[in-house]
Design a protein around this nucleic acid. Structure first.
Lengths: 115, 115
DNA sequence: CATATTGGTAACTTTAAGGTAACTGATTAC
DNA sequence: GTAATCAGTTACCTTAAAGTTACCAATATG
């Protein structure tokens, strides 16, 4: 466990874990990151690439990701306005987190299913 | 990112990430694991150690954790019935996940706050 | 005898996330 | 001239998770 220490130490470190989970969990965030990473940069492009996501939810999630500095929103003020979303280098810092989750998820599914 | 590969590969690996998040995310799961790890083994003990958790939620979360084989529920059939919850060794396999989340959470909070 | 503790369960209410549909105003395509 | 596309916003509705309250039967405590 994160802790062989005191309960207090443990619970205080929970905030950090929760912060990370905020960014990474939820139904859409990783899908959106993947979509942009794989070449979709316009709002409607991203939306079309992710089955069943609504404009409303996509708009909100994009805002969240932008606040967390994982993606960048650039407005090119031609007419009609053009908006582009790109992945920021900071998003790469999530690699370890995602890899850890992925690895554990894979082995866990094997373990639970083989019973 | 997890992926420099195709969109399809990415999205397929999402299930593993989601599996892991199911186990680790949520308001209570880690708090309960911590509580048991630090010496609370009885239902009411655990409940008292975690502020504001209701019997209902605790009972449900304990069942989840048991299904995932992270904890063990043992009933000693004395009268009155005694129930004991203990951490299984399998819970230790979560260490890497929690550490990755923790590390990222710490640095992320620093980064967002110093702005 | 009354009250508290044990490990929960049942019924009900609240909250939050997400879904649905319609709409914007400017521009292009048919 | 009608419809579609762009990037969203708004108001409303549904659903699931979580919280609230009360309760159980057995035992121990004062």
């Amino acid at each position: 466990m994160v802790v062989k220490h005191s309960h207090k130490e443990c619970t205080s470190s929970l905030q950090a874990v929760r912060d990370a989970l905020d960014v990474v969990s939820g139904k859409w965030k990783l899908q959106i990151i993947i979509s942009i990473t794989t070449g979709n940069h316009r709002f409607r492009e991203i939306q079309r690439s992710i089955p069943n996501i609504s404009s409303k939810v996509l708009a909100k999630e994009l805002k969240d990701l932008e606040e967390h500095e994982l993606i960048k929103r650039t407005v090119y003020d031609d007419s009609p306005v053009l908006v582009e979303y790109t992945i920021l280098p900071y998003a790469d810092t999530l690699d370890d987190v995602i890899k850890a989750l992925y690895d554990w998820g894979i082995q866990h599914r094997k373990k639970i299913l083989k019973k």
